[in-house]
């Protein structure tokens, strides 16, 4: 059990606490003011907020001074020019890309049918497993009111070789392998055709 010890604070301590609360409040206010001013400067505040801040800038000198200060930094950052690489940079890049060619767009070879095929395969696998497990359930409708079916499944007793050596399973895997080979062949063929059709090479660009 935890005991919380309450102690009475003296006037000096109260003064320090009050001061730190005031300081924290001022900091929060300052932060909020800066945040709102930056949004105003960046032009990302709402029209209503824009009008409110415009009014505050006219009336309140604290807001106006802060605004001027932030605006100076904003102008300085805006004026800033980016660094430049060496003069040979473009030439170097062009020399380098002469050894490469634009790769075919990913969307061309990641075919929708391939994605759908993979999706269908997994759905079929899940459905097969669910059907199998449902088949293993023993629906025992006894009078005790226990509605949960009995599951006659023991992982140790499960004869996996029965499934793996099953001719249907072998046919299923065989079909998948053939489909995979067909897809790879299609992809390679497409790539070859694209290369022949008109993707530029180093010689073409000259």
């Amino acid at each position: 059990m935890r005991y919380v010890k309450y102690t009475r604070i003296n006037a000096e301590q109260k003064k320090i606490l009050d001061h730190s609360f005031k300081k924290r409040n001022m900091m929060d206010h300052q932060q909020e003011m800066e945040q709102r001013l930056w949004e105003y400067i960046d032009g990302i505040c709402t029209a209503q907020e824009r009008n409110t801040i415009a009014g505050l800038l006219k009336k309140d000198s604290v807001w106006h001074i802060k605004y001027e200060e932030l605006l100076r930094l904003h102008a300085l950052l805006n004026k800033e020019e980016p660094d430049a690489p060496s003069l040979r940079f473009t030439k170097n890049v062009m020399e380098e890309i002469a050894q490469h060619q634009v790769a075919p767009a990913t969307r061309n070879y990641i075919n929708k049918y391939v994605i759908r095929g993979i999706w269908a395969f997994f759905v079929a696998m899940m459905a097969g497993l669910i059907i199998y497990f449902i088949g293993q359930l023993h629906w025992d409708g006894n009078a005790t009111g226990n509605l949960m079916p009995k599951l006659n499944l023991d992982a140790n007793k499960l004869n996996w070789s029965r499934f793996l050596n099953n001719s249907y399973v072998n046919i299923f895997f065989g079909m998948n392998a053939i489909l995979g080979l067909i897809l790879i062949d299609k992809y390679m063929q497409g790539k070859k055709n694209k290369g022949n059709e008109g993707h530029w090479s180093k010689g073409d660009s000259a």
């Binding site: 940079f89 473009t90 890049v93 634009v102 530029w200």
Partner: peptide
């Protein structure tokens, strides 16, 4: 243009953005 095979046009993009990428 670049995708059509005019690779030399890519130099325009390099010149346009090199300072920003470098920075």
């Amino acid at each position: 243009k670049v995708l059509k095979g005019d690779a030399s046009s890519y130099a325009l993009l390099v010149e346009r953005y090199q300072n920003y990428v470098f920075t």
